[in-house]
């Protein structure tokens, strides 16, 4: 086993995981296909791109999503901290300046000496496949609802195999 953890996908889940793992002193290899390839909904070259609304929903504890944010604050979430720091006025909701939010997360990840960003798409038929990666290291797939076809195909095969 290699002495690092692999993460595929530099979105919200992937960057949070990368930060937490590096914080524990373990090196991270983060694969992100942007800026070489984009999904139909992604346009920015930054990590942690906020694709849909710029609202992270309610900040109130009496709202389920507000409670989840508070739990994450207590667990030292990088992304919620940056969301808090880049917020724009939105009443009870936590809305962010989406450019600034992504830029801040990208900087934080890029400047972390334990995190290596690999700008490469992973999947079936590509130079790097998911099956290769999981043979070498613990791997986290965090490629989201618009996972590219070669990777979706490989995940489907891997999860079908008993």
């Amino acid at each position: 086993m290699k002495e690092y953890i692999t993460i595929i996908g530099g979105g919200l889940a992937g960057t949070e995981a990368a930060y937490q793992i590096a914080k524990a002193g373990i090196p991270v290899k983060l694969y992100e296909m942007k800026p070489k390839k984009y999904t139909p909904a992604h346009h920015s070259s930054e990590l942690a791109e906020v694709v849909c609304s710029n609202s992270f929903k309610s900040n109130l504890l009496t709202n389920a999503c507000g409670l989840l944010k508070e739990e994450l604050r207590k667990l030292d979430s990088l992304l919620i901290r940056i969301a808090d720091e880049t917020k724009v006025p939105a009443g009870q909701a936590l809305a962010v300046d989406r450019e600034e939010f992504s830029q801040r997360v990208t900087e934080e990840i890029k400047n972390n000496p334990l995190i290596e960003i690999v700008s490469e798409e992973v999947g079936k038929g590509l130079p790097t496949t998911l099956s290769d990666l999981i043979k070498e290291s613990i791997t986290i797939v965090a490629t989201g609802p618009l996972t590219s076809d070669p990777l979706a195909e490989e995940i489907a095969e891997l999860t079908r195999a008993k």
Binding site: A13, A17, Q20, K57, E71, I140, V141, A142, T143, G144
Partner: peptide, 24 residues
Amino acid sequence: LYFAGQLTGVEGYVESISSGMVVA
């Protein structure tokens, strides 16, 4: 092999972050 984010069926930004935390 671990999964995180909306691929796992959690929906929403904060929910994705929360799965990233648990997986990390």
